[in-house]
Design a protein around this nucleic acid. Structure first.
Lengths: 140, 140
DNA sequence: CGCCGTTTCTTGACTCTTTCAAGGGAAGCG
DNA sequence: CGCTTCCCTTGAAAGAGTCAAGAAACGGCG
């Protein structure tokens, strides 16, 4: 978990202005990976009270557009965000409770897989989601 | 594209009643893979006019629950449906126009991949989405 | 063939997530 | 310190999907 100074540098490096809402949201994403937007709004408000709903959405969009955070959206779930970016890792999702866990990619850079028949497409990324049941839900 | 009789048999085999709305929706999914719900409603209405919005949603839910159709939902797109089921194939999605193309799975049965570290999860499926640009959008 | 119980379809309103729009306010530059 | 640009607040709305109540249709059974 990087200190505030590093978060600032991250923002500046991406050509973004440094503002309190952006720091709050970026810090929240670093501290709690795989949270949905509503939970991120709550987490950002523990860092900076009085930040609007809309500001969080705007900040998340800017951060994803610049590549500082990654947006993931498994079926049946609202959008979730994570700060681990650039290593092309994948996800394990529990069908019962929706828990998400990171899985390292064996290759490490996109695309780690290529389709057998690419139908003329230029493929730059292979997104892999492993579906199953987490240890807790397997027991229950 | 199976005839009406085969669609009926599919429904019965899944333990479902045979109704006109179900045949219309199932036929539409067979005829047009990867359509979103709105387009499927329109397609179903060419087969059976006056079928409600809600009936299509209900039918699609029943069909996905029984495994007769598969629901896919790439990021940034509404839910889409396809009738090709049980062969664990994957998808190629164009980042620009959203076109979806099927890709055969080399293995053919789920899960075709297993994560390096499964974190205690019981994995039963690996969903793979290849992101890139289709031939048309690459040219433009 | 017709009745009845169950399932399914219609209608209409509503929830939830996400986005749009307008205006005041802060960041950064000179 | 003042100006310009970009960002955040407030409020409203769009889009996808869901909930609920009642009417209609399916299909088993007599």
């Amino acid at each position: 978990m990087p200190g505030p100074t590093e978060l600032e540098r991250n923002l500046r490096a991406a050509g973004l202005r440094v503002t309190r809402p952006r720091l709050a949201v970026l810090d929240a994403v670093h501290a709690h990976p795989h949270l949905d937007t509503e939970a991120l709004i709550a987490a950002a408000r523990t860092r900076l009270d009085a930040i609007s709903h809309q500001a969080v959405y705007d900040v998340l969009r800017v951060l994803t557009d610049t590549g500082l955070v990654r947006r993931i959206q498994p079926q049946g779930s609202a959008a979730r965000y994570e700060a681990r970016v650039g290593d092309n890792h994948h996800h394990l999702v529990c069908r019962d409770c929706g828990a998400i866990v990171d899985v390292d990619c064996a290759v490490g850079e996109a695309p780690c897989l290529t389709p057998s028949d690419h139908a003329g497409f230029t493929v730059d990324e292979a997104e892999v989601v492993f579906w199953g049941r987490c240890p807790g839900c397997t027991a229950a």
